[in-house]
């Protein structure tokens, strides 16, 4: 899981201090992955170095009355958030938690097309599942041990897709109950599906 992207997604909603960011992160993700404030400030330093956030307020970056420095997201930072929401979580390189955290942030960040985020992930996981199935048919047909290992990966990928289906249904139901969409602070990912045309049944 990338703390960088988590903090950037939170800053998309408006400027914040490190302490506020930590509290917002915990509340957005149900405190399943608590951050310490040191991690938050280290990450903010790196984000600033990379031009993705900037200090908000006085041009000299002087702290407010309580000694805290607020940060705001830059255009480059917004682009980075869009890329993050627009790309699937890798099945090997990242722990599964990143996906849960990404979705938790996607539903609470204004202007993110959550259904497009879900679909991007579902397509990527389905591709992995197709490849595992091909391996099973072609190479593991007579090798029970390998076949069972592949099955375990197949069932795991299937569980993820089932969970994504569930997320999609929950998001659609929540959207149906809330007729007006809050004003978008960020434009959705460019490859986003035409969610605006969704019919209401």
């Amino acid at each position: 899981m990338s703390i960088r992207h988590g903090l950037l997604a939170l800053l998309e909603r408006g400027p914040s201090h490190g302490y506020q960011l930590r509290a917002q992160f915990d509340s957005a993700t149900g405190a399943t992955w608590p951050l310490n404030v040191g991690q938050v400030y280290t990450t903010l330093d790196r984000l600033e170095r990379d031009g993705l956030v900037a200090q908000d307020g006085a041009p000299d970056g002087s702290p407010d009355g309580e000694g805290r420095i607020a940060y705001r997201i830059t255009d480059a930072g917004r682009a980075e958030v869009r890329t993050w929401f627009g790309s699937p979580v890798g099945s090997r390189a990242a722990p599964r938690d990143e996906l849960a955290i990404k979705l938790a942030l996607a539903v609470t960040t204004p202007g993110v097309d959550v259904l497009a985020v879900v679909q991007t992930q579902r397509s990527a996981t389905m591709s992995t599942l197709q490849e595992l199935t091909r391996l099973k048919v072609r190479e593991a047909a007579d090798d029970l041990a390998w076949s069972l290992v592949l099955d375990s990966l197949v069932f795991r990928a299937e569980a993820e897709i089932r969970w994504l289906d569930h997320c999609e249904a929950r998001v659609a139901r929540a959207a149906a109950r809330r007729p007006t969409v809050p004003p978008a602070a960020a434009t959705p990912a460019p490859e986003a599906a035409p969610a605006g045309k969704r019919g209401r049944r």
Partner: peptide
Amino acid sequence: GPVTGAESLLPAGGGA
């Protein structure tokens, strides 16, 4: 479609 190489299993957005 099926992925055909390990590179497509890597995250496209980059991580920390």
